[in-house]
C-alpha cells in the first residue's frame, strides 16, 4: 500500500469517523443494506414464473448476490452501535429503510425489470461513490460487490431490449419504468442535503445527490432510450434527472424513503426476517 493510499484511507474504523458523519454513515449503510436485502427478496419472487427458465435462474443468482451484499453491510453496522441480528431478523415493518418500490412484490416482469435496471443501478451508483472512500472498511468491500453487480445490469439491459421489440412490450415497460424512474431519482435525496455534503467533505463518498443522479442517468439512460421507450407522456419531463417531487412533507432524510409509506407488507416482512426458519438460525 502506498503512502498516498494510506493517507487517503483516513478512517480505519467507525470509531475513527468524525462525530458529524458517524451517525449519517451508519444510516447510509443501513439504507443500503435494507435495499439489498429487500431487492434480493424481490428477485427471489421470480425464481419461478419468470418468462424463461434462464431468467428464473438469473433471478436466483441475483437474489443470492443481493443477500450476500446485505449480509456484508449489516455486519459492518455492528461498529456503528447496531445489533446486526436485530437488524436482520427482528425489526418491524416501520423500521425498514428500503425504497418503497420494494414494499410489495413486483406485479409483472416489466416491474421486476424496473427494479433490476433502475433501482439496482441506483444502489450500485451509490456504492461506487464509496469505491475510493476514506472509510477503509467500506473501501475494501465495494469493488467485489460492484464486480458482481455488472451481471445484474447486463441482465436488465438484455431483457429491456428484448421486451421493447414489440409495441406492447414497450408500453408495458413504460408503465413500469415511469414510477420507478421518479422514485430512483428521488432516492438520491435533495440536492442540498447537508448530510451528503458532510459525507462528501470527509471523503467518505465522492459525490453528492445531483452528481449521483447524473451518473445513474448515464448508465440507465442509454438503455431506455436505446429501447425506444418514451417517458415524456407520463411525467412531462422525459428521461432526465429532474426530480419531480417535494422534500419537506413526504421524505424521511436518512431513510431515503417516503414518509407516507408503511414499509414492507406482512408477507415480505415474514420472509425477509426469516421467521419460518427461525429455530434453525445460526451465528
Amino acid at each position: 500500500m502506498s503512502d498516498v493510499d494510506t493517507a487517503a484511507r483516513a478512517f480505519k474504523a467507525a470509531e475513527d469517523l468524525p462525530g458529524a458523519v458517524r451517525e449519517p454513515m451508519g444510516e447510509l449503510l443501513l439504507v443500503l443494506a435494507d435495499n439489498k436485502r429487500l431487492l434480493g427478496m424481490r428477485y427471489s419472487d421470480w425464481i419461478l414464473g419468470a418468462p424463461a427458465l434462464e431468467a428464473g435462474i438469473a433471478c436466483s443468482a441475483m437474489a443470492q448476490d443481493e443477500w450476500g451484499h446485505g449480509r456484508i453491510v449489516y455486519a459492518m453496522l455492528r461498529d456503528f452501535g447496531y445489533d446486526p441480528h436485530h437488524l436482520e431478523h427482528e425489526r418491524d415493518a416501520s423500521e425498514y429503510r428500503s425504497s418503497e418500490l420494494l414494499d410489495r412484490p413486483a406485479e409483472g416482469w416489466p416491474d421486476l425489470l424496473a427494479l433490476n435496471l433502475l433501482l439496482d443501478t441506483a444502489l450500485s451508483v451509490q456504492f461506487e461513490a464509496m469505491a475510493e472512500s476514506s472509510f477503509e472498511p467500506v473501501h475494501y468491500k465495494v469493488q467485489k460487490l460492484l464486480d458482481e453487480e455488472r451481471f445484474h445490469f447486463e441482465h436488465a439491459r438484455g431483457w429491456t431490449a428484448r421486451l421493447a421489440t414489440t409495441p406492447q412490450g414497450r408500453r408495458s415497460l413504460e408503465r413500469a419504468f415511469a414510477p420507478a424512474w421518479r422514485a430512483c431519482l428521488r432516492w438520491f435525496g435533495p440536492s442540498d442535503d447537508p448530510v451528503d455534503a458532510a459525507l462528501e467533505g470527509a471523503g467518505i463518498i465522492d459525490a453528492g445527490p445531483d452528481l449521483l443522479r447524473a451518473r445513474w442517468l448515464s448508465r440507465v439512460g442509454p438503455v431506455v432510450s436505446g429501447a425506444g421507450l418514451e417517458l415524456a407522456e407520463e411525467t412531462g419531463v422525459g428521461w432526465t434527472t429532474h426530480v419531480d417531487a417535494t422534500w419537506d412533507d413526504d421524505w424521511k432524510p436518512g431513510w431515503r424513503r417516503s414518509a407516507e409509506a408503511d414499509g414492507p407488507d406482512e408477507d415480505t416482512l415474514r420472509r425477509v426476517r426469516g421467521d419460518k426458519n427461525r429455530p434453525l438460525l445460526m451465528d
Binding site: 452501535g81 436485530h86 427482528e90 421467521d275
Partner: peptide, 13 residues
C-alpha cells in the same frame, strides 16, 4: 448499548 437503534424493542420469535 443504549445508543443502538432499535435495540430491545422487539423480541419477535
Amino acid at each position: 448499548g443504549a445508543s443502538a437503534p432499535g435495540a430491545g424493542r422487539s423480541a419477535i420469535g
